[in-house]
């Protein structure tokens, strides 16, 4: 089972996670820029974070045979902080980078005027840079949030076929599917979706344009939830091609809209032979 996790915050995860993900079949990930739990206080803090998503994290992923791309954006929550919002002006210099395959995560958190402005601005940035957009839907007042999100997308220069609306559930999937957007589901241990509910949604709404992610981050979450969904699909009677469509071909198709997705295995030339993560060679060579 080959797996592409289209939404995972590897910056917050350990090397053990990378090893377990590879063993489970994960060969490619996309890491969306988001908030860090601890609020940032300046654009410079974002710059270092974006640089890590474009430099150190792909290197770390490559040590474990996993291809790493990212999405870049000012996240909805911090769009409300006037100390952070000026980073919007700096985004263009990051959006031209090779590994950036979408603008994201953008969207709504508390549905404020500042979030409206940041979402509108960043949907336009996506259109200007030939990138699709990864749009987070809010945890609170979710259906209202989805509708406001879809209104913003329809008012933008970006077609719904270039937008992935994420963190969907049973209450939002029908309207999201009708919109023509790509459909993202985050599978979590306690909140968001779980494996069995995900299978039920796939039975009712089909596998087309559906992406499943772990959205694993610094909170209680599980980077192997993608694999668990694949196993649950097989147990429920879906075949291996259905699993491959949801866990590999759909995310590949969505992020390929950027024209920047590169899925050859991570480079392993002589300059990659060293492994600084090992902090020196292992005891037994």
């Amino acid at each position: 089972m080959r797996i592409f996790d289209p939404h995972i915050h590897m910056t917050s995860r350990t090397t053990d996670d990378y090893e377990a993900m590879h063993a489970a079949g994960v060969r490619a990930v996309v890491e969306p820029a988001f908030w860090l739990g601890q609020p940032r206080t300046s654009p410079a803090s974002f710059h270092d974070y974006f640089d890590a998503l474009l430099g150190w994290e792909p290197f770390r992923a490559a040590q474990h045979g996993i291809t790493h791309h990212c999405t870049i954006a000012l996240n909805p929550k911090e769009a409300n902080d006037p100390r952070c919002a000026p980073v919007l002006e700096d985004l263009p210099r990051f959006l031209v980078k090779d590994q950036v395959v979408a603008v994201g995560e953008i969207g709504y958190d508390a549905m404020t005027a500042a979030e409206d402005a940041a979402l509108e601005h960043q949907l336009q940035l996506a259109a200007d840079h030939g990138l699709p957009a990864l749009v987070h839907t809010p945890h609170r007042d979710k259906l209202t949030g989805l509708r406001r999100t879809l209104d913003a997308v329809r008012a933008s220069a970006l077609g719904t076929d270039r937008v992935l609306v994420d963190h969907l559930n049973e209450t939002t999937v029908a309207e999201a599917k009708d919109s023509g957007c790509w459909l993202g589901f985050s599978v979590y241990p306690d909140t968001k979706m779980d494996e069995e509910r995900m299978v039920a949604v796939l039975r009712e709404f089909g596998t087309e344009r559906v992406l499943v992610n772990s959205a694993a981050d610094w909170g209680r979450s599980d980077p192997l939830k993608t694999r668990r969904v694949g196993d649950a699909m097989l147990a429920a009677g879906f075949d291996a091609d259905d699993v491959d469509l949801v866990l590999w071909r759909n995310p590949v198709a969505f992020y390929s809209l950027s024209g920047r997705l590169r899925l050859e295995p991570p480079a392993a030339g002589p300059t990659h032979a060293g492994n600084s993560i090992l902090r020196g060679a292992p005891a037994e060579v």
Partner: peptide, 15 residues
Amino acid sequence: APTTPGAGPDDGPRP
């Protein structure tokens, strides 16, 4: 099924 257990992305369609 186009996949085998543990198979990487090498064996599938690529953009």
